[in-house]
Design a protein around this nucleic acid. Structure first.
Lengths: 198, 198
DNA sequence: CCTCAAGTTGAGATGTTCCTCAACTTAAGC
DNA sequence: GCTTAAGTTGAGGAACATCTCAACTTGAGG
C-alpha cells in the first residue's frame, strides 16, 4: 500500500470516527469524504461498503470491551466487577452516538473469546450469590438495548440520567430482587440473530 | 366534507394503520396511497404532513392507554394495577411496529389527564409500599424505552421475550429491591423534551 | 528522469422519497 | 340536468444519497 493511500485511509477513519460519534451511523459518505479532505471515489476505493468503514472505525472497541471484561474478572468482588463491566460498556455507548447505533441496530459482533469472558463475569457474579440465578448472558442484551435507547433519548436534555436507568436495571438483577420470570431466556443463536438483525 | 372524500380518508387511514403496524413509521407515503387505492395527491390533500397522518392513525391509542390507566386504578391491589398498566402499554408496543417507533422516537404525546392518571398509578403503588419510593413518573420512560427496543430487536426471532425484560425491570422497581440511585430523576419538562425529540 | 502501477478525482448515472400543481372528475344542491 | 365547489390525479420538479468510471495524477522502483 502506497504511503499517500495509507495517509488518506487514516484521514478517512479519523473523519468517520468524529462524524459517527457526533451524528450517528447515517452520516452521508459524501460528507465523511469531504471532512477527510478526499473525494468520494477514494472513500469507495478504500471502503467499498459502509459496513466495512463502520467495522474499521469501531474495530478498536472490541479490544476495549475485552479490556473491561478482564478488568472485571480481576476485581475481587464479583458483583462489583459485573457492575463495572456493564457500566463501562454503557459509558462507551453514551460517549459515541455511532457505537450506540451499533448497539441498538445490531451488528454488535463480539469475538468468541469476548463472549467467553462475559459469560465468566456473569457466572462468577452468580456464584458469589449477588447476581440472580435465573438470568443468563443472553439477558444482558436487555440491559444494553435499554440503556442505549435511554442514552439516545436523553443525551441532549439530561446527559447523565442513563446512569439512573442502569441503576434501576441492576437492582432488578440482584439475587435479592428475584421473582419468577414469565418466559425462558433467549438461546445464544437467538441473541445473535437479534443483535445482528434490526 | 364530501362523501367520497370521507371514504378516501378512511381508506387512507386503514392502509396507513396496516403498513405502519407491519413496517414502522417510515413507510413511503407513495405506498400508503397506492395501498389505499388513491393517488399521492389525495393523501397530501387530506394529510399535509406525515405527522398529521401519524397523529390521525394513532389517535385511538391515547384513549386505549387512558382505559388501561383507569382499569389499573380500579384494581384493588395497587402493585398489580401498576404492573397491569405497564404491561398493557408494552403489549401495544409489541403489537404495532409503528406505535413502537412512536415510543422510541418520541412524539408520544400524552394528554394532561393521561399524565395525571399515570402519576396516580405510581403514587398509589408507592403508598401501598410495593413500588420503591425513590422513583418518579419520569422514570417510567426508562421502562418504555427499554422494552420498546427489546421488542424491536427480538420480535422476529423470539416474539415473547420482551416479557422477560419487563419482568426483570419490574423486579428492579419493587421497594424491596431499592438501592440508592446515583443521579436525580428527569424533571417533567426534561422527560417531555426527551420524548418529543429524537 | 522515466515509467507505470497504484491511487485519486468528481461529474453524472441511478434510485428513492417528498411534495406540488394545472388539468381533470365528480358529488350534491338547485 | 346544470352548475360549481370540492375533490382527485399523476407526471414531474427538487432534494438527497449511493455508487461508478474514464480521465487524470503521483509515489516509488529502476
Amino acid at each position: 500500500m502506497r504511503k499517500d493511500a495509507l495517509h488518506n485511509r487514516e484521514r478517512l477513519l479519523l473523519a468517520a470516527r468524529r462524524l459517527f460519534a457526533d451524528r450517528g451511523l447515517d452520516v452521508p459518505l459524501e460528507e465523511i469524504a469531504r471532512t477527510a479532505g478526499v473525494s468520494v471515489g477514494t472513500l469507495y476505493n478504500r471502503f467499498p461498503t459502509r459496513a466495512e468503514l463502520v467495522a474499521a472505525v469501531f474495530e478498536d472497541r472490541v479490544a476495549t470491551v475485552a479490556g473491561l471484561a478482564t478488568d472485571a474478572l480481576a476485581t475481587d468482588d464479583a458483583w462489583e466487577g459485573f457492575v463495572a463491566f456493564v457500566t463501562g460498556v454503557c459509558e462507551l455507548q453514551a460517549a459515541d452516538l455511532g457505537y450506540n447505533d451499533l448497539a441498538v441496530r445490531g451488528a454488535t459482533a463480539g469475538t468468541d473469546t469476548g463472549y467467553a469472558l462475559m459469560r465468566r463475569i456473569v457466572e462468577r457474579a452468580q456464584e458469589s450469590g449477588d447476581l440472580r440465578d435465573d438470568v443468563t448472558l443472553d439477558d444482558m442484551a436487555f440491559v444494553l438495548w435499554g440503556v442505549a435507547t435511554t442514552v439516545r433519548a436523553t443525551f441532549r436534555v439530561a446527559p447523565g440520567v442513563w446512569r439512573r436507568h442502569l441503576a434501576l436495571t441492576l437492582d432488578g438483577l440482584r439475587a435479592t430482587a428475584a421473582h419468577p420470570l414469565p418466559v425462558p431466556p433467549m438461546s445464544p443463536p437467538q441473541t445473535r440473530a437479534a443483535m445482528g438483525e434490526c
